[in-house]
Design a protein around this nucleic acid. Structure first.
Lengths: 527, 527
DNA sequence: GGGAATATTCCC
DNA sequence: GGGAATATTCCC
């Protein structure tokens, strides 16, 4: 037997013990040499074991055998209860065979099962932890992806909004120019004091009333009509030239009926129609479907402007670009059309020369229009940013009566709303602030609803709104969400709204005739 | 000595050994009784130890002492090299004292340092893992928050976009109506054949030119002029009233020159102004700054519509609402102003009666405007969704020449673009599709650029764009991102763009006056 | 002194 | 058969 290095003492001792012919009466190889027998357990333990080990216990010997993987050989024929105490005990191990001591080194003592067990348990714990970490990590990647997607969508949305706002601003410019052109054109009419011949016909359906006037009317009749119109301080005209903004999608005819009624009943002040609070109060519409607070506030601000900025354009300024100062189209149209009626004098008093001059002035208006379309007046002195300030065009064409206080206040509001939007970065509950609180420019935004309390100063309403927005920005959006049926985007649905979708929820229209109520200066149906 | 339960065999054996007076010559208590001495190491190991333990090694004995926390007592006086082998060895333990065997139970054998060590290591690992998990978890919560915030912001952005689109649609309506009003007004002018006296002055800055014309013209000439104007098929008017829509930010005059040249060369048909392909082809602009494909496509579609829908408005239809059928404001203004110039004859041919009548027609136009503002014509027969279809107003005021094929194609394109937007939900790289590919309504969007290849059929361009969009939706946005300087939102910056911000990146103007170059029909400065 | 493997004992 | 504590040995 090689006293080989890596073979435990127990195995070498056991090999020696079994091999030793002196101990064959107690322990020896089996017939086949693949196992060994302990013949007399009692004497073997007491007489033999102490010679090789530090004990004389058969149990300890067997314990060591078990520690090295030896197995007791069960004999079926002797396996029953008999021969329990005295019969021989047989042990075997695959690498413990007669004459093959070189196999001993393959017999490994069992390591403390404590540690592997512990390892197993720990590894199970580790596996759980690691799988948990993996889960979290996967979720995180998923969220990263969603976050990136959302971020990308957000950027696209911001771009879209920037684009839309740009379009909006451009449209505002276009509208402003168009209205200014009309203003110029009509003011030119007014300077010659042409009188309207016919009352305004309220066309109530798609068919426009046709005005096919005989070209060769009696000139005398025309003259008379003009004389009457020019001399009267108040016209009997049943025409209402007031323009208000209303919601066209409003299917019920209430507003229309009201307005037409009012139009019929209202008196037309010829010389000067003072746009007052009453007028503003009348500029109301059914806010049934369009109820965004921001839009309402914008409308209020518009009304405010229309109410508080005196209009002083006069016929004396015809052919001057002062009309460019008209900031509020409603007001502009209103005052223009009013002036048209007010300044009108009897055309019969005009000679042909004057008529020609008047017609010429129309040409001038066309040219003015072209000039306006060139945008020179606006692109030069109006800062781009100023375009969104209520006093933007006033800068270059201030016609007076527009106090700087008003302007400053409006500016303040605008800035406040913008600040509000920016402060959201600190707000855990971030909300996009609708920028439409910018008062004046929100005017032709389709904002059709006006506050139901016209007596409350609209500028205060606007401020209140902003204050509310400062406290809870969500308020600006919540109401519109409840009332509008605009589709709400989800994380899943990323497609843009179709224009049809965008419009069908709440489509409102800009203009409506201002239903002036009857007043002391506006006797009804004087015709 | 109590053979107490929980005291290890070694301790009880050691206690017995030290206590036993028989072994005092080998091992005994110290003087103070707080330690014990091994006097003759050699003989003690060989003679005494085997009586109590399964070995005779002093080393093993000492090992056991160490295992139970016994310490060797160092003697300073004998600590030097001397007495190395033969000197007595002293060991002590706080709980191993003479006469105090009840303390033995407090002496604990050191447990395998392996496991605590392992535990320590494992716990360190676990701590690392757990802190890592915690980190991941925290990050996850942070991302959850950001995700929710972004989601909320996204929803707000979608609402904002819906709102802006609504405003946009409303503004389109307003612009359409305003232009229609102007068309009506100017057409009324045209029916009387008022001749412009002066060529159009191109105002190149904010100052408008004033037109103070000689008041005393020859009335006979006016009458003649009218007759001629009514009878003449073509006018020699030197005025170009063509208005095109282009990018005002475009500084070079190339495009403008081309268009004006073409306009000058084209014949003006008086009785019936035929808007032909030439006119549409001229409506081009430099796409330098506004290069969004979607917008371009929209412009192209507009041009297409303008090109392929013959315009049949004639002077005979004055005072009829046919002008409402004018779909393309460019075309409208073009034809209107052309008619104005074409039909204009010497006003001296007009009598006072005719002048009065003409002025009256202006009043009628005003009334028409009011009627339009009432929106009656539009609200009834035009479906809201149809407003965004290129054929929307044609529905109610079809003037012929607009083939349904064209309409269907445009509709198809629109739907395709919308589908594109919706399909993005399946796309990992989601992109917001600009809806401005809807052709006609993009018209006054501030979309001022037109394709630089006017010879390519615009409708095909539009389809190509949509096809490209179907392949790579990102293409729709990419170009505009590169050229526009619109601020891009980040996750941090959540505040809405200010309107100033939105506008300053690329502000373009809708309308520009067509600078008429000198031509055979447009001699300059005839005044 | 103490780590580590093995051995022995005790116990289930 | 084997877990577990203790013991012994070997080694650094």
């Amino acid at each position: 037997m090689k006293q080989n290095s890596n073979v435990p003492a127990f195995l070498t001792k056991l090999w020696t013990l079994v091999e030793d012919s002196d101990t064959n009466e107690f322990i020896c190889w089996s017939q086949e040499g693949s196992s060994f027998l302990v013949l007399d357990e009692q004497r073997f333990a007491k007489e033999i074991l102490p010679k090789f080990f530090k004990h004389n216990n058969m149990a300890s010997f067997v314990r060591q055998l078990n520690m090295y993987g030896f197995r007791k050989v069960m004999h079926i024929d002797t396996g029953i209860v008999k021969q329990e105490r005295d019969g021989p005990v047989e042990f075997q191990h695959p690498f413990f065979k007669h004459g093959q001591d070189d196999l001993l080194e393959h017999i490994k003592r069992k390591v403390s099962s404590t540690r592997p067990e512990e390892n197993k348990i720990r590894q199970e714990d580790l596996s759980k932890i690691l799988s948990s970490v993996q889960n979290v990590h996967d979720k995180q990647e998923n969220m990263d992806s969603r976050l990136a997607t959302l971020k990308r969508e957000n950027e696209a949305l911001w771009r879209e909004i920037a684009d839309l706002r740009q379009k909006h601003a451009n449209q505002q410019q276009v509208i402003k120019k168009l209205i200014q052109f009309i203003v110029t054109l009509v003011q030119n009419n007014s300077i010659l004091g042409l009188k309207r011949k016919r009352p305004l016909l309220l066309n109530s359906n798609g068919k426009k009333s046709k005005f096919i006037h005989p070209i060769f009317d009696d000139p005398v009749d025309h003259s008379k009509g003009l004389v009457n119109g020019l001399n009267g301080l108040k016209s009997n005209s049943d025409i209402s030239d007031d323009v208000i903004i209303c919601d066209l999608t409003d299917e019920d005819a209430e507003v229309t009926d009201d307005t037409s009624k009012n139009f019929d009943q209202r008196d037309v002040e010829i010389v000067e129609v003072q746009i007052d609070d009453d007028t503003a109060a009348l500029v109301e519409a059914n806010a049934e479907r369009e109820s965004s607070d921001g839009l309402e506030a914008a409308c209020e601000d518009i009304t405010e402007t229309a109410t508080e900025v005196p209009e002083t354009s006069s016929a004396l300024q015809v052919n001057k670009p002062s009309v460019l100062s008209h900031e509020d189209p409603v007001k502009m149209m209103d005052s223009i059309l009013s002036e048209n009626g007010a300044i009108s004098q009897n055309i019969s008093l005009l000679g042909k020369v004057e008529l020609m001059d008047y017609l010429d002035s129309i040409d001038c208006s066309l040219e003015d229009f072209q000039a306006m379309l060139q945008c020179k007046q606006f692109s030069i002195d109006a800062d781009i940013a100023e375009l969104f300030s209520p006093n933007n065009t006033v800068n270059s064409h201030d016609i007076g009566g527009h106090t700087s206080k008003e302007t400053d206040k409006s500016k303040e509001n605008t800035e406040l709303s913008l600040r509000e939007g920016k402060s959201e970065g600190d707000n855990a509950d971030k909300q996009l602030i609708q920028y439409t609180t910018c008062p004046l420019l929100a005017f032709l935004d389709g904002c059709s609803s006006l506050p139901p309390e016209p007596e409350v100063p609209v500028c205060d309403l606007g401020e209140n709104l902003l204050e509310r927005a400062a406290e809870d920005p969500g308020d600006l959006l919540e109401p519109s969400l409840e009332t509008q049926e605009l589709p709400r985007s989800t994380l899943i649905r990323l497609e843009p709204l179709t224009e049809a979708e965008a419009s069908e929820a709440s489509l409102f229209y800009l203009c409506e005739l201002n239903p002036d109520g009857p007043g002391p200066e506006a006797p009804q149906l004087e015709v």
